[in-house]
Design a protein around this nucleic acid. Structure first.
Length: 521
RNA sequence: GCAGAAGUAGCUCAAUUGGUAGAGCUCCAGCCUUCCAAGCUGGAGGUUGCGGGUUCGAGACCCGUCUUCUGCUCCA
């Protein structure tokens, strides 16, 4: 019996062996946590992206797509909070080997002092009748002492952060005698800064003033363009802007194959709504998105929601759609109710109004935003690892098959002549040349037929068509199903419709589509 | 970044105490066969991740380094 870890290793080697994913720059020993998509991987990835794009943009009258640049004005990242929040000062305890955020350690320490004050207040409240808390806090000697200590730490810490003085941050931790919660020791490394954004410089001359960042998320490209799109597209609230594209994060530890990469692709949609309706839309998008995932048929039980209790600074409500990867349930997509945080920030930093005039209310406001954001590479990994199967077939041999959703398969149909003679190749090529206009198809005549079937199984081709002697007589062929391995003899003329039924993405989209009415469009 | 494990042909793995780098599968050419990885003949494929060191001699031992996996940590 193979463990999930073994299974995952097999997925990784399969991905390489069959041209789905290669390590980047492999001949130079590779680059950590950067991967390339090979000939089959690129097709699969493109199909997943198409499924997303079409379900968002094509199937929703009020959602449009854009393609913003990776480079953005540096102030964008000040407004978004990334410049501050993506710079974590970290410190390691040498005994427990645990890593902490230095600021969190100090804040926890301050919280402990605050707890002590609270206890004093509670004690006093029990003792005295008509207790005046404000009075007590401003006069009690012990409370004042605690408060002064806390204020001192706070101002010292604030200054250290402002001066970017990491030595001082470490000294604060030492002076406060903060111990590691695990080892209980005070044996700390130096505090180090990790900037999670990649930077480069724009223009031929390098100096600090023209440093720009590679975007750490695609969302800001939508926010800064929201008014352009709204005006030129004459969009009425509620409406959405969709985008797929690369984002970059200098992760401290990036691992688990393509699950956490330094360069990755997001597919996200920001939905702009009237303030007060955001909860409704948040719930609606949660429902819509989970249905979209489940339509792929990987298994209902593979998905679950994880509602965030601790929210990021911008969020009013947040939930993840988690998927059961071989290494456990992990985040696949995030759905966030972002309020007007982003647009308000951009208003403030740019000095430009980002308001929408609502004709129904006859007033202007900054819309609220509900975001859906999927990791394309993660979805790719979810689909690949779930589809990968090593099954034992009737004759006792094992068969490796990728039971990909047929609409997403890199190659839809493989066409084989049973033998490379007697006019069979010519007949097969005829079919090949008909189908290639509609689908990604392949032709092969090398090796025996069984071997050719297995090769297609390994890359997830849903259909194999074989031209045999009988085909030359009555224009019928056998068509073999990847999952059941069963063959059916059909007329050549019936093939296009048959294939279309299974591989055309529109059937997937139809499953999801509500019939549009005047109200919903 | 810390700790553990690993890295030999495209893939999976051998190689006794430090003594000629090998097998199966794959791949290529041809033959034969013809519906689920069949067979035969021939061929290609390697600076053993990389760089140093020890040694008469290193795939193996030592040091460094890169990459991957697992745990910790981090994760908008």
């Amino acid at each position: 019996m193979s463990t999930p870890e073994d299974q995952f290793k097999n997925v990784i080697s399969h991905a390489k062996e069959y041209g789905f994913i290669f390590q980047s720059s492999e001949i130079y020993d590779g680059l950590s946590a950067v991967y390339d998509y090979g000939q089959n991987g690129a097709e699969l990835k493109k199909n997943i992206r198409d499924y997303w794009w079409r379900s968002m943009v094509q199937m929703n009258e009020n959602i449009v797509g854009i393609d913003a640049s990776i480079f953005m004005h540096p102030t964008t990242w000040k407004a978004s909070g990334h410049v501050d929040a993506f710079n974590d000062p970290l410190i390691d305890n040498k005994d427990s080997k645990k890593r902490y955020r230095a600021d969190v350690l100090i804040e926890d320490h301050m919280a402990k002092i605050e707890d002590k004050i609270k206890k004093e207040v509670e004690k006093a409240a029990k003792r005295f009748e008509g207790f005046d808390e404000a009075m007590f806090r401003s006069t009690n000697a012990r409370v004042l002492e605690y408060q002064a200590k806390k204020d001192e730490i706070e101002s010292r810490f604030k200054k250290a952060l402002e001066d970017n003085d990491l030595g001082e941050v470490k000294k604060i931790i030492e002076d406060l005698e903060i111990v590691c919660p695990v080892s209980g020791s005070r044996n700390w490394t130096d505090v180090r800064q990790f900037n999670l954004m990649f930077s480069t410089s724009m223009g031929a001359v390098t100096d600090d003033s023209n440093i720009i960042y590679l975007r750490p998320e695609t969302a800001q490209g939508i926010f800064v363009n929201y008014l352009n799109v709204q005006k030129t597209g004459r969009m009425k609230i509620p409406f959405g802007i969709a985008q797929t594209g690369k984002a970059f994060r200098n992760e401290i530890v990036a691992r688990q194959f393509i699950f956490r990469m330094r360069e990755f692709e997001q597919m996200e949609m920001q939905f702009f709504v009237r303030p007060g309706t955001e909860s409704e839309w948040y719930e609606k998008w949660k429902t819509t998105r989970i249905a979209w995932h489940k339509a792929l048929g990987l298994g209902e039980k593979k998905y679950r929601f994880h509602d965030h209790i601790k929210l990021a600074h911008y969020a009013k409500a947040a939930a993840d759609i988690e998927f059961e990867f071989p290494f456990g349930f992990k985040e696949l997509e995030g759905i966030h109710s972002r309020g007007d945080f982003d647009l308000k920030q951009h208003e403030q930093f740019s000095g430009k109004k980002l308001q929408y005039f609502d004709p129904e209310l006859n007033q202007s406001y900054v819309p609220y935003v509900v975001e859906t954001s999927v990791g394309l590479d993660r979805l790719f990994l979810a689909i690949l690892s779930t589809s990968f199967k090593e099954e034992t077939i009737e004759n006792g041999e094992t068969r490796t098959v990728l039971s990909l959703p047929p609409q997403l398969a890199p190659i839809k149909v493989a066409i084989f002549p049973l033998m490379g003679k007697d006019g069979m190749p010519e007949k097969a090529m005829e079919i090949f040349n008909t189908l290639r206009f509609d689908h990604n198809v392949t032709y092969e005549e090398k090796d025996n037929i069984g071997k050719r079937y297995r090769r297609q199984d390994a890359i997830g081709t849903p259909y194999c068509i074989t031209v045999d002697q009988q085909s030359l007589v009555d224009n019928t062929v056998t068509i073999r199903d990847r999952d059941t391995m069963l063959q059916e003899r059909v007329a050549i003329s019936a093939i296009p419709a048959m294939i279309d039924e299974k591989v055309n993405m529109k059937h997937l989209l139809k499953m999801l589509a509500e019939v549009p009415s005047k109200e919903t469009v």
